[in-house]
């Protein structure tokens, strides 16, 4: 604790809770690890219940802190993960493009999420669909881009993307897309009362002051 004293904490960003859902083995943990630490482990374990990591991300010159909850896909962990759905800002539905059944299960995941997160107006909730393992060969691919888009349209989900945690393609983009999607949903929903909005405002003020200060120091 004492080490922190006097240090002015830096992350005064908006906090966004992101939940990653999807069948076991589609690479949720890998996505998170790639995104957060740019690290890929071929032999990763099953997640027990949930895992949690933080990551700052900048979009349109605005900083956000993503609190990413990576969940266990196995059915036997169902009771361990569902408590964490509540209070999510973004839900990332994942499947593996070489696994048709994981794609089909997304309906189930979506419903599970809506149920446990207690979302009422489900249409406006920012879901993003991520098809992972885009590194597999064409022969191995079982879900086409078209299928993905069709599914998203049917389910009223605006954002989808294919990624590869293995070769780091589109991972950053996926999360960025998620936040942008959230921003849009947020402005649409026009929620007035939100605990986080204060934080955003203050940080804005703060950075304004900083900017003028810095400008003054260098321009003269």
């Amino acid at each position: 604790m004492s080490g922190r004293v006097n240090m002015r904490p830096t992350n005064k960003n908006a906090l966004l809770k992101v939940v990653i859902l999807g069948d076991g083995g589609v690479g949720k943990s890998c996505l998170m690890n790639r995104f957060v630490s740019n690290h890929f482990d071929e032999h990763s374990f099953h997640t027990i219940g949930v895992e949690f990591l933080n990551k700052d991300i900048e979009i349109d010159n605005e900083s956000y802190t993503l609190q990413i909850w990576d969940t266990a896909g196995q059915e036997r962990f169902k009771t361990l993960r569902t408590p964490f759905y509540r209070g999510s800002d973004i839900c990332m539905l994942t499947y593996a493009i070489d696994d048709k059944s994981s794609f089909r299960n997304m309906n189930m995941w979506k419903n599970e999420f809506l149920y446990y997160a207690d979302i009422k107006e489900n249409s406006s909730f920012p879901f993003i669909v991520v098809g992972n393992k885009s590194d597999v060969s064409i022969e191995e691919r079982e879900v086409s881009q078209l299928e993905l888009e069709t599914w998203c349209n049917e389910n009223g989900i605006a954002s989808c993307i294919e990624t590869s945690a293995k070769n780091a393609s589109n991972v950053q983009e996926a999360f960025k897309m998620a936040v942008q999607h959230w921003l849009r949903a947020e402005s649409r929903a026009d929620r007035t009362e939100c605990t986080y909005s204060d934080t955003v405002d203050l940080s804005k003020k703060q950075s304004d002051v900083r900017n003028s200060c810095c400008a003054g120091a260098t321009d003269d």
Binding site: I48, G49, T79, L80, R81, P83, F84
Partner: peptide
């Protein structure tokens, strides 16, 4: 295992 999850929660 579920203890862990609950504690996290």
């Amino acid at each position: 295992e579920s203890s862990y999850s609950f504690v996290a929660k």
